[in-house]
């Protein structure tokens, strides 16, 4: 993926989420402003045959993985044209045919599932790997440790990615996790593990590409921690606990602004191209909203379909 494409992808996520939050019937949503570089950098390094699994905060990952804004918007607004026919909704987007095995909104709930997907690939000789993204909030859960142990023991082709946005709802990571680095947790199991700046999309993409290459070559699992920053509250319905001043300061380190500045400085993009990009992004988001708004809700009888 070129740096242009990565910038486009991050802008699309930001614009999509802003539009979703502004939609009067959005329910409540888990947004990711500030964390776009992790989503885009991770997906830039994956091949079509890989499967990505995430936690609930998954819109950025779904879009970066190539799901169309229209099908994602429809799903998040509960429409039958959504990826999951409107039955998954927020936190459960899923499109396995497109390499997005899915989000799962139970904190830490997808970690062992990803190892199972990796086991299936190992046993069937499928060349794809499994990649699971979870937050710092999931890193205190026992299932992470159970899964790291088995993944290391069985040399599963799985990449564990902690998107450390430094907050579980309102609780700072330092208040609830003892290790100095979250990646230290994996070292005990002999898993290659490193922490990187998650606000720089180039750094994320390179780190993931290297880890993916090692896993593909049969090295067993790897663990990456990306330090990122969530610019808004836990959800569109949750109270923000940080001060306005603090938020303003945090938002200065924006992955989209940083990449834009870097591209302008090096002459890789100009203001005209940026304006075209912004207008294209906003057309795409508008079209997605129109598609979702025009789509029907599922029939009430769908409540009983796909249960067994």
């Amino acid at each position: 993926m070129t740096r242009h494409e990565m910038l486009y992808s991050m802008k699309l996520i930001r614009a999509f989420e802003n539009a979703l939050a502004a939609h009067p019937d959005h329910g409540f949503q888990l947004l990711s402003a500030g964390e776009e570089a992790v989503a885009v950098g991770v997906c830039a390094a994956l091949a079509p045959q890989d499967q990505l699994l995430t936690g609930g905060r998954s819109i950025g990952f779904a879009l970066a993985r190539g799901l169309t804004p229209a099908e994602v918007m429809a799903e998040l607004l509960g429409k039958s044209t959504g990826t999951n026919r409107g039955k998954g909704g927020r936190g459960h987007l899923s499109a396995p045919a497109q390499g997005f095995f899915g989000a799962h909104a139970v904190v830490a709930g997808n970690i062992s599932i990803a190892a199972g997907v990796a086991l299936a690939r190992l046993m069937t000789g499928d060349p794809g790997i499994a990649v699971v993204v979870f937050g710092d909030g999931a890193s205190g859960a026992g299932i992470l440790h159970e899964t790291l142990n088995i993944a290391a023991l069985w040399r599963l082709p799985v990449l564990f990615i902690c998107n450390n946005n430094q907050l579980s709802v309102s609780t700072p990571r330092q208040a609830v996790l003892a290790p100095k680095m979250i990646s230290d947790l994996a070292l005990a199991y002999g898993i290659t593990a490193r922490t990187f700046d998650g606000m720089q999309v180039d750094i994320v993409a390179e780190a993931v590409a290297n880890a993916v290459q090692a896993i593909r070559s049969g090295a067993g699992p790897a663990f990456l921690e990306f330090t990122s920053c969530r610019f808004a509250a836990h959800s569109t319905a949750a109270r923000e606990t940080r001060s306005r001043d603090e938020l303003q300061r945090l938002r200065l380190a924006c992955p989209i602004m940083d990449l834009t500045a870097a591209l302008l400085t090096t002459g890789q993009i100009n203001h005209e191209a940026l304006a075209t990009m912004d207008s294209d992004v906003s057309d795409k988001v508008a079209a997605a909203l129109n598609f979702a708004d025009a789509s029907p809700f599922p029939d009430a009888a769908e409540a009983l379909s796909d249960v067994f």
């Binding site: 062992s112 990796a118 086991l119 299936a120 069937t124 159970e146 142990n149």
Partner: peptide, 18 residues
């Protein structure tokens, strides 16, 4: 290992993957 949560989780993931 004695790790029922991961055993079931990994089993379920493998099942979902075919």
């Amino acid at each position: 290992p004695v790790a029922e949560a991961a055993m079931i989780g990994i089993g379920v993931g493998a099942a979902a993957a075919g």
